[in-house]
């Protein structure tokens, strides 16, 4: 690494922190929204199910980059909202992540067989009790490994926030590139940093998956 680029190590470090933070935030928010949508997706009423399907299909069909623009420019014009790049990026990432999470939630809950529902209900448990004590503990095991995948995907999508001027890891790198005029090396450093972060997360995910397999 040339010393010219190395002098900016703290900028890269800060970028890594911000990238981890915004993607984590989007994962939590997307998880919460995804949980609701995922539950609606398996609701007993066709109209609600279809609404959830439309939500999921729309937000996995529209490119995150287009969503970033829609939130940053579209919303601020249409609703006269005072959206910072941070809020616009968080909303866009949450929408994308929630569509992915909804499918994860659905798969998790559907992995618990009908028979268990019926057995628990016939034991006199209420619907929320069945959900809380029978279905959820099993579903979350099925849901955890793919959630790690959603986190990695969200983390990668967060690089698009650089386009609307949010200074995360990619944008930090582009700024260093502008200051030093060194393209290849700086971009390579960003790529390596993303790889290290995401690969570590995927290793944690694989470990989780193994652990939950043993419990089964």
């Amino acid at each position: 690494m040339s010393s010219q680029v190395a002098a900016y190590w703290y900028v890269f470090l800060k970028g890594v922190g911000i990238t981890l933070w915004i993607s984590w935030l989007a994962l939590i928010l997307g998880g919460a929204v995804g949980l609701v949508i995922g539950l609606l997706r398996i609701a007993p009423w066709a109209a609600v199910r279809w609404a959830a399907i439309v939500y999921i299909e729309v937000f996995r069909s529209v490119p995150p980059l287009v969503l970033f623009f829609g939130c940053f420019y579209g919303l601020s014009y249409a609703m006269k909202l005072d959206l910072s790049p941070f809020s616009a990026a968080t909303i866009a990432l949450t929408l994308t992540a929630s569509a992915l999470m909804a499918e994860v939630v659905r798969a998790g809950i559907e992995s618990v067989t009908r028979g268990q529902w019926e057995a628990a209900l016939s034991q006199g448990m209420t619907y929320p009790q069945v959900f809380r004590y029978v279905v959820w503990p099993q579903a979350i095991r099925v849901m955890l490994p793919p959630s790690v995948g959603v986190y990695i995907s969200t983390l990668k999508d967060s690089s698009l926030a650089s386009i609307i001027g949010y200074v995360e890891l990619t944008k930090s790198g582009l700024l260093v590139r502008e200051s030093t005029g060194i393209s290849f090396e700086v971009l390579l450093i960003i790529a390596i940093l993303y790889f290290v972060i995401n690969y570590s997360i995927s290793l944690v995910g694989a470990a989780l998956e193994r652990r939950f397999k043993y419990v089964h």
Binding site: I152, K156, D157, S159, L160, S162, T170, L174, R177, I182, S183, F184, L187, L188, I190, A191, Y194, F195, I197, N198, Y199, S202
Partner: peptide, 23 residues
């Protein structure tokens, strides 16, 4: 597989368009 799955597409695009051109 591991390298390409863990790097954002945007960074790969920049790397090819700007980075490779520089070398």
């Amino acid at each position: 597989v591991e390298v390409l799955r863990n790097i954002p597409l945007l960074v790969v695009i920049y790397l090819i368009f700007f980075g490779l051109a520089q070398v």
